[in-house]
Structures are given as C-alpha cells and as structure tokens.
Write a protein that binds this DNA or RNA. Structure first.
Lengths: 337, 337
DNA sequence: CTGAAAGCGCTTACAG
DNA sequence: CTGAAAGCGCTTACAG
C-alpha cells in the first residue's frame, strides 16, 4: 500500500491524497471524504522514511538513557514517556550502557530520525565536545548540570549533587557518626558521581572528620548487586563502621541486605543513607533515609524546558531542581561508647 | 553532507561511494581509501531514511514493552538490550502503557523503521487479530504464551503462569494457610493475569479451600503503590488473613510495606509470596518467596528464537521457560489456634 | 480544488 | 572497477 495505490483507488492524484493525509486545506470535502474512507478501509499508513526524507521539521523526541540498572533513571524515564505520550508527542527511547558515548548516539539519531528534541537522561559531560556543534536541535541534559557547557541549545535540569551529598554527611555527623564509609560510582571528573563524591568529602571536612579516599570511599556500579558485594567486603575488613553513605538508593538496598546477612541490623548496628529517593526507597524495609530528587518535578521541568526551546529561540537555562533529605528508618543516633 | 558531496570531494561517482559505505566489493583500493578518508574527515554519516527507502532487508530490532512499572519487564528489557547491543544489533525500545495497543504500535514501527524483528515484552493476546496478517517479519512474544496464535512468524517464550500460580497456593496451603487473598492485575481473558488468576483458583480448589472471587481476589495495577493501597484495605476489612499472594514481586513489596505499617510482621503475622523473581526480590527485606522466572534465560531464548526465525524460515516455537519456586523469608508455617 | 513533476538522499541493476 | 540513471514513497511548489 502506497500513496500511489490510494490515489488510484480513489481516482484522485497523489498530491490530493497527500494533502488529505497531512490535514492541509485546499481539498474539496468530497475528495477528502472519499480518500479518507479508502485510507481507512485499506489500513494504509504512510511510509515514514519517505516523509522524513522530504520534510523539514522533525517531529519526534528522543530520550537517551545512560545505564540500565539506575533506579532513578528508570523512574524519570517512566515519567517522561508518560508525559510525552499524554501530550501526544512521539518519543523514542534509546538505552545505552553506563560507559557508552551518548553524544555519538545522539548524532546518529539526529541524522536518521528527524528529531525535534533530545533528552539526555544521565550524561558524562566530558563527552560533550566539539561534536555538539553539529547538533542544532534543543537538548536537555537531565540529572547533570550543564552550566559549563557553551551551547545555546543545551539546557539542563539537575539537583545540586555536591551540596546534597554534603548534607547527607552532615546529617550523619550530627547524629554522632564518625566512622562513615561512602560507596558510589567511579570518580572521574565531570561525572555525576564526582560531584557527589566531592560533596561527601566536603561534608567530612566541615564536620571535623578526616577523609581518606582510600579508606572512606569505595567505588562500585549503580546496582543492588554491586552495593551488596562492596558492603560485604567493607564489613569483613573493618568492624567499626557505623554508617554507610550509598550514592544511590539502588546501591543502598544492596548494602542493607548485606548488613542483614552479616547478622547486623539497620539502623541499630549500622546506619545507611541513600541518594535519589526512588519509589523503592519509600517501600523497602527499612525505608531509606535519602536525598529525594522529586523525579516528577525533574521530568516535568525537562519537558517544559524542551518545549520552551522548541517554541522560541530564547536562550538556555540550567535549572537546579530542589531536593530534600527525607528521613526514613535507616539511621539511628550513634552513642559513643 | 550528502553522498553527492562526498562523491564530488573524492572525484568519484555516487555509486562508488555507496559501495564503499556498504562495504561491497568491486571497488579499487585506491578509490576505497580516498573515499574513506573523505568520509572520515567530513564526519559524514548516511541518511538512514533514504537508505531504508531503498533497502529490502530491515536491520533493526524493535522491542515494545507494555507497562512502565513492571519490574519483571524492566529486568528483561535490561537483559535484551544488553544482549542485542553486545551482538552489535541495533535495537529500538518503545514503551507503551499497560492498556495501549501493542499491535497498532508494531504496525507503525514496521512501516517506518524497516525492522528485521520484533519483540513484544508483555502482550494482550486479544489484540493479536487480523492485523497481524500484515506483519511478515519474525515476532517474539515474551512472557505470554502464544500457542493459540495461528501465525507462523510468531513465536513465544513464557512460563506456565497457571501452573506456577497454583504451585504458589499449594505451597501456602501445605504450610497451613487457609485464609489467603490474591492480589494482581485485572482479569480479562487472554491477559497474563488471567492465567495466574486461574492458577490460583485451581490451587485453592485442589487444596480444599473455597475460592470466592469477591473475597479472595483483589485487582490492582502492577506497582508498589497499588500493592500498598490494596493491602491496606484488605487489612482494614478482614483481620483473619494469614497469607497474601501477590501476582508480581513489585506488588509484593508494596504489600509487605503495608503490613509493616499496620504494625504487623512478615512473615510472623502474615505471609507474603510474590511472582517473577526480579532482582529486588533477592535484596529486599525480607527476601520474597516467589516464582523465579529467570529473566536471563527468558531474554536469551527470546533472542535465540528471533535469530532462528531471521536466519531460516523454519516454523515457529512456543517455549515454556522453566520457573522455580524460590523460598525467601516471607512465609512461615501457620499453626492454627 | 486538482494533478503532473521535481526532488529528498540513497541503492542497485545496467552499461561500459 | 566505475558512472549515469532509475526508482524507493513521499511533499511541495507550480500550473491549471
């Protein structure tokens, strides 16, 4: 079934059929009705490749999500796709690995898909180099701040990871914890883990605690499994840890399970705090004390900014989304003995 | 940058350039090198729409995932995209709502994207009607059995939901539980929930328990939130329930949290079993006794079947994936008093 | 209001 | 080994 077939079946030319398909004016009612009927009956749908080849403006929004196991991203993705679909906006999701190159992926997408907008869900800013010059559609970077990026078509929505992380440490310190270990992603600059790492470090120092990156920080991937394994090792090697800062809730769940399996209780023996405030943090046992990122708000702002870009050519914006420390049941006051 | 530009820059014709791009033979080394160099320098990438328009064979695999909050699907999706990408196969993910029409979505995809294969992650078989006749590429339905579907290009991988569900009930019954409530999705025929529902019903009957669909079954969506709310209501209205069968682990997590918030313990006061065996079921507290679906195996078989279809035109297959009841920490023997 | 025709950027026989 | 040309299924001026 092609537009030519429809034209023949209807007795009109392909130009007229095309106008009907695209809801353009300048077609008689008679023609429109007849053509619409035939399209309906034959179940015809235009070939998108041929359309794209001709059309100027893009009409789909792509979301590139970085990492497959990141609970926060999964939550935000869920919100994004939901919002977009209820706005009748087409969207395509591409999931790439934590260490793949999202900019290369974006370039490929733009060339092929005739996009009108792009959302990076998670990003390594180090990858945002000169190649970005070739991208002229609006881009939103979600969960990482792009303040330092020079491109006018790139906005971002993120929380202040550094300050949130240091708040987490301050919170533990204020409850008497002194032997704290942080577990989170690998620390290369321009990564989200880095800001959180720096925040923790600052938190230690501001509260009179020594921070030794060897002793107080252990890197792991963003998954329950990884959090579990790393915590197991920590517990085996140092028996005096009283609190663990997990740089994501997913990691925290793994950590709590490892503590339990070591015969200890959270929070009675060891306190745990998480990061992100994903849905699970409110339903697991114990509830996790965490930095709640308000995925709903982040998704909403991302979409809003994207549409603002698409509608006019105002400058970009770098939103700092609010966060708040939500107290769960995973921390207790530590009384020194 | 188009193929024409590359041709001009290189001094060769577009036919030759095209052959180089597509790694075809019949091009002199001299030409190949020169053209490759120019392509490299100019950062050229061919327009996919134009290629698709001409090409016969599709080259991308689409995954249509049904439901945004389904932990099992998220787990399988993670495996699928990982496998596909490590096989160097392009894949596109489309996420639709629990009650949207996946076949319509598939039709749209095929028309536009020049697919070579399609994986339905979750499906409502009632939607697989005559429209399927227009789909001639290999399709895999994952997690729902398509044995009854007449199309030769459609295979499926699923567990025997009915027997698994009844095993779950038998397990509880054998541990002395008599007041059991099942919570799960809405029960329209040809849905996955239906098979699980029927299995539970059978389980009740085979174990001498009366099954009243009003009293013993409560419908809810597949999310923690929904499981939480429904369980709260159940606890408020009937105080003699000793066990809850949640038809997904995600629901089970919500249920366990609700029980805890009602001041009761799992499993001491109320036992809970789940379904799916998602990663979370192994890390939450208590670990969930559940039907483990082995997402890894399901994903692997799905991909295998898909490739089998793509390589030759053998008939279809309907795989029954193994499941096993994994004992967690969420069930205890019920001693009648 | 309608149709014939050019052209989007490619691929692929067909000549040479 | 290479190039000119047809054609994929559309959209969009341009005539009428």
């Amino acid at each position: 079934m092609t537009i030519k077939d429809i034209a023949e079946l209807s007795g009109y030319g392909i130009g007229t059929v095309s106008r009907v398909i695209n809801k353009q004016s300048g077609v008689s009612n008679k023609a429109r009705e007849k053509i619409l009927k035939i399209i309906e009956e034959s179940n015809y749908e235009p070939n998108e490749n041929a359309r794209q080849l001709k059309k100027r403006a893009g009409d789909v929004i792509a979301i590139i999500m970085k990492g497959r196991r990141n609970g926060l991203f999964i939550d935000i993705l869920e919100r994004l796709t939901y919002m977009l679909s209820s706005m009748q906006e087409g969207s395509i999701v591409q999931i790439i690995d934590e260490d793949e190159d999202e900019v290369a992926e974006a370039l490929r997408f733009i060339r092929d898909k005739n996009l009108k907008g792009l959302i990076f869900l998670g990003a390594n800013l180090a990858l945002f180099d000169d190649r970005m010059k070739e991208i002229d559609i609006p881009c939103i970077i979600t969960t990482t701040s792009a303040t330092d990026l020079p491109w006018k078509n790139v906005s971002s929505v993120s929380v202040d990871d550094e300050s949130a992380a240091s708040e987490l440490v301050r919170y533990l310190a204020s409850r008497g914890h002194k032997n704290i270990v942080v577990i989170g992603g690998s620390i290369s600059e321009k990564q989200i883990s880095y800001a959180r790492y720096m925040g923790c470090k600052k938190g230690f120092q501001e509260n009179g605690l020594e921070f030794d990156s060897e002793r107080n920080y252990v890197a792991c991937r963003y998954s329950m499994e990884a959090g579990y394994e790393v915590t197991k090792k920590i517990l085996a090697s140092s028996s005096d840890v009283t609190a663990i800062v997990a740089l994501s809730d997913t990691i925290a769940v793994g950590a709590m399970r490892a503590i339990k399996d070591a015969g200890k209780q959270v929070p009675d023996d060891i306190s745990v705090v998480g990061f992100d405030g994903i849905e699970l943090s409110k339903f697991c046992i114990p509830r996790i004390t965490t930095i709640s990122q308000d995925t709903d708000n982040i998704a909403k702002r991302s979409v809003e900014l994207l549409f603002k870009h698409m509608q006019n050519t105002l400058g970009n914006e770098h939103d700092i989304a609010p966060y708040r420390l939500v107290e769960g049941e995973s921390v207790r006051e530590w009384i020194r003995n």
